[in-house]
Design a protein around this nucleic acid. Structure first.
Length: 272
DNA sequence: TGCCAGGATGATG
DNA sequence: CATCATCATGGC
């Protein structure tokens, strides 16, 4: 991967990232592609526009310094994803997952936003999840540009209260969102869970109402960077039982086990 | 343990 | 067109 500075942004050459799959694989709810192939969304309180071009990716309006300071980690550009797909492809039943998932990168998202988003995602479908999150941002988030809103701070959510959240129509999840916001404002240090063990992070996240092992696993993977975890006792077990041999061990994926998990999730709709 | 909590969506009758 | 099951679930 090489980064070049251009007139109004940076161009990343020699990367295997596929933006459509990365934004559409269920890890992220805030990016949309327009008819010209431009992806627009908000991450880490910045409005972003980017697109694929000449076998690489152009990101508008950022410098190389900003890329190295934040976006390189956000887009997980320094991992060898070839290793993940190679490991997956060695299991006959899920070789298709490796092929389908090729190009997915695991985004390192803001932990609070990730926690909130996956509380909203529980027992829910992607169109409605996106709708609720967009409504939440428009209601309580800072306006970054015309009609473009940052994800609201936990303080803003606490201030709104459960009645204040009524317009976003999150249903029974509103009380969980409030509890998460109160705990974060009250000192739950999500950043600190990045360096904690996966088990400690899960335990801490499950203290929040509405957060069980599945939601916690998503937050640990997408918001905290726990890419090494492949928890066989949550959702993934269903897929494993279906596609893997009984003696399969996720340890073959090493530090990329959590990423293999996401490839399977993305590909599962194509495996039958 | 089983039932319940929005509402969108796609399958089925 | 109506009805139903499902949803990366958790709480009580």
């Amino acid at each position: 991967m090489t980064v070049f500075t251009e007139k109004n942004g940076i161009f990343i050459k020699d990367t295997d990232i596929d933006l459509a799959k990365t934004f559409d694989c269920g890890q992220c709810f805030r990016f949309e592609k327009d008819e010209d192939g431009v992806f627009m969304g908000v991450a880490h309180s910045k409005a972003l526009r980017l697109w694929e071009r000449d076998g690489g990716v152009f990101i508008e309006g950022i410098t190389e310094k900003e890329f190295d300071g934040l976006w390189r980690q956000y887009f997980d550009m320094d991992r060898d994803y070839g290793q993940v797909t190679k490991a997956l492809s060695e299991f006959g039943a899920v070789a298709a997952a490796a092929e389908k998932g090729k190009g997915i990168h695991i985004l390192l998202q803001d932990p609070w936003e990730t926690l909130c988003s996956f509380i909203i995602s529980q027992n829910n479908n992607i169109p409605r999840i996106k709708k609720i999150i967009n409504a939440l941002c428009a209601l309580l988030g800072k306006e970054l540009a015309e009609g473009v809103y940052a994800f609201p701070t936990p303080e803003a959510v606490v201030a709104a209260g459960i009645k204040g959240l009524a317009p976003i129509r999150s249903g029974f999840r509103a009380k969980y969102i409030i509890d998460a916001a109160e705990k974060v404002v009250g000192g739950l240090d999500l950043e600190a869970l990045r360096t904690a063990s996966y088990e400690e992070a899960i335990a801490a996240l499950c203290m929040v109402k509405g957060v069980g092992p599945k939601v916690a696993n998503c937050v640990a993977l997408f918001g905290l960077g726990h890419t090494e975890a492949f928890p066989v006792d949550v959702w993934i077990k269903r897929v494993m039982d279906k596609y893997f041999d009984k003696d399969f061990s996720p340890s073959v994926f090493g530090k990329n086990a959590g990423i293999a998990q996401q490839y399977l999730f993305y590909a599962e709709r194509y495996l039958s």
